[in-house]
């Protein structure tokens, strides 16, 4: 049975020629690039989250403001309509009560008088026409 100890322990991996000679200078260049980068502070880490929260708050504010304005406009329109109807009814009522009823009453009174006159004339004419003399003498 083969055992893992039978396998030579030497490192089987190798590198391209001159790799470790040039690695320090490549690393130095990389380090200089890293140094030029802005340091990562707590603020820079949290910045995207701040933007997200600000966007969300702005969106919620605009949404709420928009919905309020819309419902307010609708309510205003409804109120205006209702008040105009009430005003019309009020003026109609005013008109009926103050003028029309009075005129109607006068007209009614006049027509009663006319009707009375017509009635007498008509009765007379009717009696004459029907030759109902005895009634006339009564």
């Amino acid at each position: 049975m083969r055992r893992q100890e039978d396998i030579p322990k030497n490192n089987p991996f190798n590198t391209p020629d001159g790799y470790f000679d040039e690695f320090p200078s490549r690393l130095k260049n990389r380090l200089n690039t890293e140094k030029d980068k802005k340091p990562v502070t707590l603020l820079t880490t949290l910045k995207p989250y701040f933007y997200f929260i600000a966007f969300f708050v702005a969106f919620a504010f605009i949404f709420k403001f928009g919905v309020d304005k819309l419902t307010k406009d609708y309510r205003n329109q409804e109120n205006e309509l209702q008040s105009s109807v009430e005003t019309e009814l009020y003026y109609e009522y005013e008109f009926i009560s103050d003028n029309m009823i009075y005129e109607e009453m006068i007209a009614l009174q006049d027509s009663t008088i006319i009707n009375n006159e017509i009635n007498e004339e008509m009765i007379t004419a009717y009696l004459v026409e029907e030759d109902i003399e005895y009634l006339m003498y009564e």
Binding site: N11, T15, P16, Y19, F23, P24, L27, R30
Partner: peptide, 28 residues
């Protein structure tokens, strides 16, 4: 320590190019 650390990483990652990247990251 570059050679020692390279060998530690290489045995985990197997691929030389990946090892080179991670060796740089480790030293940074």
């Amino acid at each position: 320590y570059q050679e020692k650390l390279y060998n530690v990483i290489r045995k985990i990652l197997i691929v030389h190019e990946d090892t080179d990247d991670i060796l740089q990251e480790s030293f940074i």
